[in-house]
Design a protein around this nucleic acid. Structure first.
Lengths: 231, 231
DNA sequence: GTGGCCACTTGATAATTGTCAAGCCTTCGA
DNA sequence: TCGAAGGCTTGACAATTATCAAGTGGCCAC
């Protein structure tokens, strides 16, 4: 292997406090792989064989039922996905595919579970990670159940504004995926963007400019208990 | 205190493998309380002061935004709620109120966090619990995003049928709360019940009878990756 | 270049879901 | 016993969202 990815893993909060011996035994069976865009990584219903760590690129988590499909989340570097399935040794609830060219580290699930059983620091780190994930999904559920699609879009844009620290930014995914993520159709999203124009949202392709933050916030009514993804 | 609730707590998988010394230090600051129906226990946004254990009765977890309210989950004996908020020491994302007369054990959050930090078995048990919760919420999100309200109701009824092991059963909550839980209005639920009649669902008050399971399943298309709450 | 592909948009229409108002029925307490 | 309250239902209607079809425009391979 030309380069080491060990440090990428060790830098993750999930693995930072782990005992060195245990860390080594985790890394022993691991490997890194490069994927082109739009490659299926895992399929919902399958058994977890590896814990995945996204080092670069981006991964889409999505689910299907009865011919329909919906985007559940986007995983960006550096973080893991399907941690819960790995620990429980239960079937994946979501499928995953690369959005861009991505570099992904694979840690054998069995090893992860073994280390989990004997390393208290690792177990505690998993708790922190899972709490975060759990709360993120709860927030997402509140977003879905309490808001209309127009309100969800407005709040999404405000979150992106906060993330980038600028009132002008580019969408970091295709609009069709954004629509799916927000629980609506592409057509509806297209109209929703128009519907936000009166509140100070200018759209040009995938470039967004918030021209009247006050007005947009008055409409969106963002709440830390839904929109603050840091807690 | 006339009776001890220690065993109720110890019987929970969450606390079963915990070191006895740590268990005692957890119980030291704890107490049990009886609540009448419809009493607010916690309010979203507040800081977690106690980890709650429902010993008897039932508790509704719900969330509000902009004057709207939605039921997120029902907690039944014997289990805990707001575990993630307690561990992270982050604000509650949901409010809680009793549905019936309930008996609830309160464990000081600070004690829970302290024991969590030093007891590996406890940390591992929390991981198991949180994984379960996380996967439950993911399933719920899939239910919401991939299904119409009629399909959600149909699958809910099938789940209840599986839970009770009988094709005739009583709804265990008010229809207005069921509606809120399923992400619809009471009026819509009322019509949805009618809409399921052709698929073999008979409704009389809160008593349900599935007269044609095959037909209902053909319509509902239940999936273990959404409807099996045991994995 | 140029043709095709594909995401996106737009319009027309339909399905789904929500809102409002009224009435029914059970429950519960005076 | 009666009346009020509240949950449930129903009807009429409105809002939201989805579907279908057609068109636009950018991007890429040939």
């Amino acid at each position: 292997m030309p380069e080491s990815y060990r440090q990428d893993v060790r830098d993750l909060a999930l693995f930072a406090d782990m005992d060195q011996v245990n860390f080594e035994s985790l890394m022993r069976g691991s490997y890194v792989q490069n994927f082109p865009p739009r490659i299926d990584l895992i399929t919902e219903g399958d058994s977890p064989d590896f814990l995945h760590v996204v080092v670069s690129g981006a991964v889409d988590l999505f689910s299907s039922w009865n011919g329909r499909e919906t985007s559940m989340a986007t995983v960006r570097p550096v973080s893991t996905f399907i941690l819960a399935a790995t620990i429980k040794d239960a079937p994946y609830l979501m499928s995953a595919r690369t959005l861009e060219k991505s570099r992904i580290i694979l840690l054998p699930s069995e090893d992860v579970r073994q280390v989990f059983e004997k390393d208290g620091a690792f177990a505690r780190a998993i708790v922190t990670e899972l709490s975060q994930c759990y709360r993120a999904v709860v927030k997402n559920t509140k977003d879905l159940k309490l808001r209309t699609s127009l309100e969800r879009l407005a709040n999404y844009l405000l979150r992106q504004m906060g993330r980038t620290g600028s009132s002008a930014f580019d969408l970091l995914m295709e609009k069709r995926r954004l629509a799916s993520f927000l629980g609506m159709t592409p057509e509806n999203l297209s109209r929703a963007f128009k519907g936000l124009e009166p509140y100070g949202v200018r759209v040009d392709g995938n470039h967004i400019k918030i021209t009247d933050t006050e007005e947009l916030m008055r409409f969106a009514k963002p709440s830390p208990l839904i929109d603050d993804h840091s807690t």
